[in-house]
Design a protein around this nucleic acid. Structure first.
Length: 592
RNA sequence: GCCCUCGUAGUUCAACGGAUAGAAUAAAAGUUUCCUAAACUUUAGAUCUAGGUUCGAUUCCUAGCGAGGGUACCA
């Protein structure tokens, strides 16, 4: 709340006049429910600067503040906690500000601000998307939206891993066993079709290994020399030399995958401002390595491979270029980062949404770029998130334990449909409207389920227990929004009047307080790259609203002023739910 | 071996170093002639262990136990 700033000043001034001490920072917190008050100042830290009884200090300060701040109506002291009660009038004024601010808490994009790039998704083109990708996509998209809501221009991007031996494996298997099957001929989604051939390759590869071993080869030899693998490696060489037939097949099959991915992205409601393709970027960074070698940041080993020694920083040595002169992952990432900052002169910050299994990689990447002298390297962030695990452990495509993204989305929508039909509240809706709603609810449940968890923590997903629609869930929040809209539809009076002279009910106060906290929460979520903070905030808001809704009449108020006020609060809670959920990429329904 | 995360109710999640550790779910009980019961109201239930730092520790430090991940020419 704005009030905190003026309060902070007043506290500093008060401590100066009362005790002649300078307090550098003041600790505020929300007053706990069991005590009277709205905002609490913790006095204990002051004891470093003045000796004395915390209770007495707090009391003196409380008296001072009450005399000097009209917004304060009262105070009380418990131990070293100074609880301040803010006047109703101040709350009502703040509600008026919210009423007169469009999208309170969401900043307009400021073109003079530096921009931010958020990279997320970044799939391989040989496997369909699964639940882990869903988490990545939802997180990346949401973080981009949240940063944009703080007024910064955001570029959403992905780098598509479209080259390498793994692609050749799918290509080879398709050539051999595909019978010219296409997404059109088979009706399969392109990414699924290509994924099938990746699996097929693996099967054949295993068969060949087994047969080689039975002919006397060691396991290691067999793995290295299986003919189908050699053929795939051959194909990669042909691709790299630009062989037309190979490149054409590669383009064709990749396009199938992109079309398939696009469908999934579309369903999920995520998008990108631009794509990067690894086939275009995999050579980047080599010249940087050469430069770094000259500068002595890197060093060459006898076999010709290039390394960086990070042992002084407590890390290991890390390879940046292979002995044969080809690039590794790190080389490419160095090059890509540099290129992006060249391409976008207004770029200030780069966020990589990548799983925590790559923590080490990004630590090293950022360190190398710093050593190379790029100032912007201190604005690189690895949005590291925990894996989505199953009760059986990690998802493994080879063991068939992956939770497929498309299937999960369909399942969620089906569940929404079933529940909605059982409840039967959608009279008058067309079939199209109903289907749209099921999608809104189903995806809302899925997205909220994923995003409410702190990104850093791993998620345990049990496919047997379906995602809930009751309790702390997306549909619960959507439901509250729908109820509010229902009220607003029934309003037959003008509720734009500014209400000032009314005594607030505690539940009204709670809600206005929470509404005021929204902008702060957005800032916090942006700073911490954590959509979970928005999700938790929204849940608290909704919870408080439902209590209010259940225990107090809104449209049924006898007093017109009261009725207007409660309608305004309802309206703003609705707006805030909508805006908050937009940051999470979740839609809200008018009815449900 | 070394390095990095993480250990909170039966389960899934919260808690800038602050007051009696919050929710949800599962369990038990209740609320609908009243604005949508996908809701609300009660009850019961948890900080891995042992030390340390301090006015105060789930949070910071050390050790141990447990889970996951990384570990040099795969991305």
């Amino acid at each position: 709340m704005n009030f905190q700033k003026s309060l902070e000043k007043a506290v500093k001034k008060g401590m100066k006049t009362l005790f002649e001490v300078d307090i550098p920072s003041i600790e505020f917190q929300e007053t706990r429910k069991e005590f009277e008050g709205d905002l609490t100042i913790v006095v204990f830290p002051f004891l470093k600067f003045i000796k004395g009884n915390p209770f007495e200090i707090a009391t003196k300060l409380g008296n001072y503040l009450k005399e000097n701040l009209s917004e304060l109506s009262n105070f009380n002291v418990v131990k070293g906690f100074l609880n301040l009660t803010i006047s109703d009038e101040y709350y009502l004024q703040s509600l008026d500000v919210i009423n007169n601010t469009e999208n309170f808490g969401i900043e307009e994009i400021d073109k003079n601000e530096k921009s931010v790039m958020v990279e997320y998704s970044s799939p391989n083109t040989n496997k369909p998307l699964h639940l882990g990708h869903i988490r990545n996509n939802l997180l990346g998209y949401s973080v981009a939206e949240i940063i944009a809501a703080t007024g910064k221009k955001v570029y959403k991007t992905q780098i598509i891993n479209d080259r390498g031996i793994h692609i050749c494996k799918s290509m080879l298997a398709w050539e051999r066993y595909g019978n010219s099957e296409t997404p059109d001929s088979s009706g399969l989604k392109g990414d699924k079709l290509v994924g099938n051939y990746y699996v097929k390759f693996d099967e054949e590869y295993k068969k060949e290994i087994a047969s080689l071993i039975s002919n006397g080869a060691t396991e290691e030899e067999a793995k290295k020399n299986a003919p189908i693998l050699l053929e795939a490696q051959n194909m990669l060489l042909r691709w790299e030399s630009g062989d037309e037939k190979t490149v054409n097949l590669w383009k064709r099959m990749n396009q199938w995958v992109y079309d398939g991915f696009d469908k999934t992205y579309n369903e999920l409601g995520v998008n990108f401002d631009m794509n990067y393709y690894e086939s275009n970027t995999y050579l980047l960074g080599k010249n940087i390595v050469a430069d770094g070698l000259k500068k002595g940041i890197f060093y060459k080993k006898e076999d010709g491979s290039v390394w960086i020694d990070l042992t002084e920083e407590g890390l290991d040595e890390k390879i940046v270029l292979r002995a044969d002169g080809t690039a590794v992952y790190m080389t490419q990432d160095i090059g890509t980062a540099i290129q992006r900052f060249k391409e976008f002169p207004d770029l200030d910050t780069l966020v990589y949404t990548v799983g925590n299994e790559q923590d080490y990689h990004f630590k090293v990447l950022i360190l190398i770029l710093k050593k190379l002298g790029y100032i912007w390297a201190q604005h690189l962030y690895h949005l590291s998130y925990g894996m989505v695990d199953l009760p059986s452990g990690k998802m493994k495509s080879r063991e068939g334990t992956v939770v497929d993204a498309d299937e999960l989305i369909i399942e969620m929508i089906d569940t929404a449909r079933t529940i909605s039909q059982e409840l039967g509240k959608l009279e008058g809706y067309t079939i199209e409207e109903k289907e749209k709603l099921y999608k809104t609810i189903g995806l809302g449940a899925l997205k909220y389920y994923i995003l409410k968890v702190d990104p850093k923590k791993r998620i345990l997903f049990d496919p047997k227990e379906s995602i809930d629609f009751n309790g702390n869930t997306g549909p619960f929040i959507q439901y509250t929004y729908a109820r509010i809209q229902s009220i607003l539809r029934k309003v037959d009076f003008d509720y734009s009047e500014k209400i000032l002279n009314i005594s607030l009910h505690q539940k009204e106060k709670d809600l206005i307080k929470l509404l005021n906290y929204f902008p702060e929460n957005v800032d916090n979520a942006a700073k911490n790259l954590s959509p979970a903070l928005i999700a938790n905030y929204t849940y608290d808001l909704v919870k408080a609203y439902n209590t209010f809704y259940q225990s107090l009449p809104i449209l049924g108020c006898d007093n017109l002023q009261e009725k207007i006020l409660r309608t305004q609060i309802s309206n703003q809670v609705g707006n805030t739910i909508k805006n908050a959920f937009k940051l999470l990429g979740i839609d809200v329904p008018e009815r449900m």
